[in-house]
């Protein structure tokens, strides 16, 4: 869990610097998902990130969603899996499925 602490520390630093910040958290997994429930990614308004919610396969799409969350403040629930066209495009090739909650740090 020290991982989570480091990610939250970075989120707090970005927040203090006045940059918008969003947190993405894995809330559900099916099959051979690469990261466990609770894994986190912090994203700032410039798209910089720390942490991970997958082996790197869906981070790009999550960062895009995070920047939208930073803009409008509305939390989002994202699904990625092999049955999902978009996820296939971003390549969750491990065959698992994950659900990710994205929220703004206000």
């Amino acid at each position: 869990m020290s991982d989570t602490l480091e990610i939250l520390e970075q989120a707090a630093r970005w927040r203090e610097e006045g940059s918008g910040v969003a947190l993405a958290t894995v809330t559900k997994t099916w099959g051979s998902a690469p990261r466990p429930v609770g894994a986190k990614l912090a994203v700032n308004g410039a798209g910089a990130m720390v942490g991970s919610v997958s082996g790197g396969c869906v981070e790009g799409a999550v960062v895009e969603a995070a920047r939208a969350v930073i803009r409008d403040g509305k939390p989002r629930l994202l699904d990625f899996g092999v049955s999902n066209e978009e996820a296939w495009e971003v390549g969750l090739a491990c065959g698992g499925k994950i659900e990710i909650f994205v929220e703004r740090v206000a």
């Binding site: 869990m1 939250l8 707090a12 947190l23 740090v105």
Partner: peptide, 15 residues
């Protein structure tokens, strides 16, 4: 997540 909750989580984690 608001700033107070973030601070509360960080304080617990640091201690």
């Amino acid at each position: 997540m608001n700033g107070r909750l973030l601070e509360a989580l960080l304080a617990a984690g640091r201690d």
